[in-house]
């Protein structure tokens, strides 16, 4: 047995020589977490669910003051009302689409649907539920869909992100998201990783750059600038635009892949959606 193992390792080692060595997602994740823990040695792992507030004292004070009267409170209530009291044209309800108890729905997303061969996000599932039951889909980036997502996130607070990569096809989606995260793009030629990994904690003008570890934990987010809630994909579009890259449609395969990668990197962190930001 031992011999076989050695032989296998040797063969693997040899096989990986000529190709660019590709780390497994789990190795990636461990390195990713270590990167941020080394960069912010005083920040406990679980704190990364608080985004920029984990790494900047000034931001944290403002945020804590905001959260005393959370600006998303009514939206969460409205989301609960929409989720629990909507009757679709065929008489069914949201609950008929989601098998889990209400506090365990958000932790199921995003996931790779092996039958369909694609990543399904919570917002995608909400609209697919509507369409399957004869209702019009909601607009993707704000409004009712963000409220329902905020409600489901709020119900799941404290549960951990636990994204799996079940097969090779799923790994391709993961790689696609990883590639988006690390590629330079736009006229300004800047990667997500440049701002949210290699320069995280620093300031771009007056904005403190949040660490990418934990990005998906607290979405949707209520922003002063937006005057309401926005989904993760809305934020992706904004960040793409800032570097003068063409924003992609919310729930496009590319953004779902990016969310899948970001959520996998954040495995083990608690969900604390929604949150409030500048």
């Amino acid at each position: 047995m031992k011999k076989i193992l050695i032989a296998a390792t040797a063969a693997l080692g040899f096989a990986s020589l000529p190709a660019i060595s590709q780390a497994s997602p789990e190795q990636d994740r461990q390195e990713f977490v270590k990167y941020f823990q080394d960069r912010f040695p005083d920040v406990p792992f679980q704190e990364f669910k608080n985004g920029v507030n984990a790494v900047d004292e000034g931001r944290r004070e403002q945020w804590e003051a905001n959260e005393e009267f959370p600006p998303y409170e009514f939206a969460v209530d409205e989301g609960g009302d929409l989720f629990n009291n909507t009757t679709f044209p065929n008489g069914k309800s949201y609950a008929d689409c989601f098998d889990e108890p209400v506090d365990n729905i958000r932790p199921q997303y995003p996931y790779f649907d092996t039958d369909r061969g694609e990543v399904v996000t919570l917002e995608l599932a909400i609209n697919e539920c509507r369409e399957a039951n004869g209702a019009e889909p909601l607009r993707w980036k704000k409004g009712d869909i963000a409220k329902i997502s905020a409600y489901l996130g709020y119900q799941a607070r404290g549960k951990k992100i636990d994204v799996e990569i079940p097969n090779e096809e799923a790994e391709k989606w993961y790689e696609r998201g990883k590639n988006h995260f690390y590629s330079k793009r736009g006229q300004l030629n800047i990667a997500c990783a440049d701002c949210h990994q290699y320069h995280s904690g620093q300031r771009a003008r007056a904005n403190v750059l949040s660490p990418a570890l934990g990005h998906p934990t607290h979405f949707p987010v209520h922003r002063k600038k937006w005057g309401g809630l926005g989904t993760l994909h809305r934020r992706y579009g904004g960040c793409n635009r800032n570097i003068r890259a063409k924003p992609l449609p919310a729930q496009s395969a590319e953004y779902r892949a990016l969310e899948y990668f970001q959520a996998y990197m954040s495995n083990g962190l608690e969900i604390n959606a929604p949150s409030s930001r500048e």
């Binding site: 620093q202 300031r203 771009a204 003008r205 007056a206 904005n207 750059l209």
Partner: peptide
């Protein structure tokens, strides 16, 4: 340039 560099005479400069 102020997005990333402190420059005399400029406000709200970044630290990148």
């Amino acid at each position: 340039c102020l997005a990333c560099h402190a420059i005399e005479g400029g406000e709200l400069a970044g630290t990148i």
